[in-house]
Design a protein around this nucleic acid. Sequence first.
DNA 1: AAGAAATTGTACGGCATAGTACCGACGCCC
DNA 2: GGGCGTCGGTACTATGCCGTACAATTTCTT
Lengths: 238, 238
Amino acid sequence: MPVPSQRYVRNHLLSILSPDDYEAIQSVAEGVALGRRDILIAANKSITHVYLLESGIASEVAATPEGRRIEVCITGPEGIVGVPLLLDVDRTPHETFVQIEGDAVRVEAAAFRRLVEERRILRRIVGHYAYAAHLQTAGTALSNGSHTLEERLARWLLMCHDRVDGDEFPVTHEFLSTMLGVRRPGVTTAIHSLEGAGMIKARRSHVQVLDRDKLKAAAGDSYGVPEAEYRRLIHAGR
Amino acid sequence: MPVPSQRYVRNHLLSILSPDDYEAIQSVAEGVALGRRDILIAANKSITHVYLLESGIASEVAATPEGRRIEVCITGPEGIVGVPLLLDVDRTPHETFVQIEGDAVRVEAAAFRRLVEERRILRRIVGHYAYAAHLQTAGTALSNGSHTLEERLARWLLMCHDRVDGDEFPVTHEFLSTMLGVRRPGVTTAIHSLEGAGMIKARRSHVQVLDRDKLKAAAGDSYGVPEAEYRRLIHAGR
DNA sequence: AAGAAATTGTACGGCATAGTACCGACGCCC
DNA sequence: GGGCGTCGGTACTATGCCGTACAATTTCTT
């Protein structure tokens, strides 16, 4: 797959690069399709590529030796998958996989390292995203520790909604229960509650956001801090 | 206060720098005493310095507009406070304050930015720590979402124990309840439980670790993943 | 020494979520 | 179009933690 010209690129980080930096990336990048459940970064294996999503969503999951799993960060076209490489870290105990299929521009690890080593502004932009991702993970820690399931679910749906086109996206209760670290039937009842309040519409394997403002209210203060900081850090004016 | 010679420095990141890099830092650094509750990084204000702790512990806390607070990362002599500056981020919504008093080597923000810009290995070491900190925060998210209060308390005590000299350190139930995002009486009973099992000894405003192995067992799989990765990433051989 | 403040111990009802089990419904595949 | 696997709905008990209140104890202040 070809890499789009910068004019048409949908990844936000790529879109705000200087034409020169963009060209440098373009010359070593390739376009790829991301299928559901594709593993972009495998746990404890060398990171092979970074992925700049054009569409779709990836989830970073932390796990324990005993098999507990929980989502700690989600990335869509607003970011990049492969932050460790910016920090000269070549592998990670976390797994990152495709949650909603889409397309991406990807760059081989060594080439990416060279690029960020040589290009200050590119390094700066990816660094800003890395910090936004840290804030998101911290927000998840806060949310997991002090919000109800319903609030956390609302937060999660909002974060997905921010990253997809349109108001509907595929997701199962079972999947949500893993991401949020709760029981599956708990997700079912929480979804019913949000649906009963007219915020969302749930179909088999799909959720549609009907009233984003109400959903924000349902999320309470669990949503917003990392999002605001992302906007402050990463803006078109570089 | 003077900055120690590298031979006697206790901060782990400083201790593994090349003599050349250490000297460069030393020439712009100053030693400071850290008092309990001193704010090292204030929320949403310019970061003035980075702090490389020689002793003591600092806590990074995430907060919501409505005043929920929870600890997302803890740093002692194994790390550095002020990671955002490495990523060219000049402020953060999180607050970092001194949890256990001690000493630190600190470097003014602009000087630190210049140093990491110019010195590849220094940048690499701080970057590795930044990633270890991300893993710790992710571990906190996982733990908050899927472990019991008792397990989380055990994890927290272990993380403190890792960062102090000796087996005893000052901490109140009230403080712990904020850090863990739970009720204060919940902390009291959890401490009693650990104490009853002979893992710790609690005195007013103090906790002493008696049996670290048992404490690890009590923490279950909530403790260990970020710690192992820190050791892998940051080792004496650079 | 007395009062104030901080810290810890304890109790109790109530709710949120866990754990588990089972069934119905939908959709895909042969 | 029948069968099977995935997905979602519901029910029940168990339990961990919340919210709250209040008292006892230790330490600090004056």
